[in-house]
Amino acid sequence: MAVVDVLNSKGEKVSQIDLSENVFNVPVKKSVLHEVVVMQLASKRAGTASVKHRSDVKGSGKKLFRQKGTGRARRGNIKSPLLRGGGVVFGPDPRSYAYKVPKKVRKLALKMALSAKLIENELCVLDKFELEQIKTKEFNKVINVLDKRNVLLVTDAKDEKIERSSRNIPDVKVLRSEGLNVYDILKYKNIILLESAVKQIEGRLAG
């Protein structure tokens, strides 16, 4: 097992923790990480672009003028795509870009992302993170003591004080362990795991 130091909010070593080999020591394959990240980004696409087609445009269905004898081009009704205010021929309609990769692949990619952070010494374990009140200054003070920038902090449960205190700090995100995902792990340079969250992550991914 990989042994990692557990720090307190003052940056001091207080103990050590054994990280599961099955979760934090998995060979990294960029192709698997890429596949899952692309899936996540595709699922986030809005796909709400929409236009009015000929049948959606409000207007009379009457033929504008007779077919022959006027010397003008042949016209149908006022909703023709050739006229201003008419329907659009090949415009977009609302759609979903989401798709799924197998659950085993998603789980494997999550293990690979965590393993990559551990290999690159960009993973830190914190014994606990407690704030007396919602205060951005106090949250930022702990991050500065740990000397971390571009941070993803993973907690074991909802903590409103931590989540609200971090909102106005750029390049910092607080995420609960159940929402941990490949994209966020790779997006942020440093990952801080609460010691209590490590067990939850291992329990989720060990099987």
Rank of each mutant, 00 (worst) to 15 (best):
N77K: 04
N77G: 08
I78D: 04
R84A: 09
R84V: 13
R84L: 09
G85I: 10
G86Y: 10
G86P: 13
G87Q: 12
V88N: 11
V88R: 15
V88Y: 12
F90V: 08
F90M: 07
F90R: 03
F90S: 04
D93V: 14
D93P: 00
P94F: 07
R95H: 02
S96N: 12
S96T: 11
Y97K: 02
Y97P: 03
Y99N: 05
Y99S: 06
Y99K: 09
K100R: 15
K100H: 13
V101H: 05
P102Q: 08
K103A: 13
K103F: 06
K104V: 15
R106Y: 03
R106T: 14
R106F: 05
L110I: 12
L110M: 12
K111F: 09
A113K: 03
A116L: 15
A116P: 06
L118F: 12
L118T: 07
E120I: 07
N121G: 04
E122A: 13
C124Y: 11
V125T: 07
L126W: 04
F129D: 03
E130W: 07
L131Y: 05
E132S: 15
E132R: 14
I134Q: 05
I134G: 03
K135C: 11
K135D: 15
T136E: 06
N140E: 14
N140I: 05
N144A: 13
L146F: 00
R149P: 00
L152N: 04
L153V: 15
V154P: 01
V154E: 00
T155G: 01
T155H: 00
T155I: 09
D156Q: 07
D156L: 04
K158Q: 02
D159V: 07
D159Q: 08
D159K: 11
E160K: 07
I162N: 07
I162A: 12
E163K: 02
R164S: 11
S165H: 05
R167W: 11
P170W: 08
P170L: 06
K173V: 05
V174N: 03
V174P: 03
R176L: 01
S177W: 11
E178G: 05
G179A: 13
N181K: 02
N181S: 02
V182T: 08
Y183H: 13
I185C: 06
I185A: 05
